[in-house]
Design a protein around this nucleic acid. Sequence first.
DNA 1: GGGTAATCGATAATAATTATCGATATTATA
DNA 2: TATAATATCGATAATTATTATCGATTACCC
Lengths: 162, 162
Amino acid sequence: MSLPAVAVSQSPEAKFREYLASRPKPQRFTDQQRDMINYIFSQHDHFDAEQLIEDLKRDGLGVSRATVYRTLAKLVDAGLLRRLEFGPRMFYEHDYGYPQHEHLVCEKCEKKIEFQSAAIESVIRDVAQQHHFQASGHTFIIRGTCRECNQAKMTKRRLDLI
Amino acid sequence: MSLPAVAVSQSPEAKFREYLASRPKPQRFTDQQRDMINYIFSQHDHFDAEQLIEDLKRDGLGVSRATVYRTLAKLVDAGLLRRLEFGPRMFYEHDYGYPQHEHLVCEKCEKKIEFQSAAIESVIRDVAQQHHFQASGHTFIIRGTCRECNQAKMTKRRLDLI
DNA sequence: GGGTAATCGATAATAATTATCGATATTATA
DNA sequence: TATAATATCGATAATTATTATCGATTACCC
Ligand SMILES: [Mn+2]
Ligand SMILES: [Mn+2]
Ligand SMILES: [Zn+2]
Ligand SMILES: [Zn+2]
């Protein structure tokens, strides 16, 4: 966990049940939803639908692909998860109980490094105001090569020269 | 065209031919590539593969879907086009002869508003240095509702109240 | 102009996600 | 607690964007 958690008053499950109850048409809370929330909030990381399906299966919790996609959409809508557009597939991470932040993504090893930046928040505010734009969200990703992958490349280059 | 163009010494076609010639294995310049470059650089906008295929067809220039995708990849590699990850499909825009900038994207009308920000460039430099990360590119998109769509919503709300 | 091989077009394949629909399980009510 | 109503589930088909395949075409060097 690379950033300090944010204090919250409710458990993720309680927050989700509150969301379900507040919908115009009543929504039900199911065993599959409970299993997914328990698994997802047992650790902070960046995951996609396919990984989650595999991880749940490994833990003996069989949740179908369709239900995983459906529930992820609800968790995002409920404010529990944040969607991340890294490349061709969607990734997800904690939103509830975790601070706003941005990512460095390594193109070699897929590692995600988190950082916070007040400057970006202020750019968003300023630009939105200038263009009378009502901002609702943003994506900021810096792509490149992480320290470890850089060192590996350097070492290889040094060896190649011998 | 919302931002001032950058002066360049070569035509896009000349630049692309130079790129083809500089490849380790010789690459050929085809009629389809010429047609695509001529069409794409006749205007500055944000387009995806499907739109480009339709537009070329409308102009009597039939370029197959496979060739459009193949050539777009080459144009990006040659530095003529920049790839934009707006939502589920890839978009493209001029890179050669056009300044670095970021986007506000309206979720209602799909409009793309361009803006430049020195602050973002400096955030990227600082964060990369702090994490010993070799940055090679970035994505910065602010999502929300544009001025016009906001006004439309406001007007509708006002009418609803009557 | 002729030979070689890069590129083309048509179409099949892939990958991620969404839609369909009969079976199942949650919730409200008697 | 049993029952009825219907939201959700799982299996699978469909969709969408993109990439791979492969025989036909054509750019480029001589
Ligand atoms: Mn993160
Ligand atoms: Mn642009
Ligand atoms: Zn790495
Ligand atoms: Zn708009």
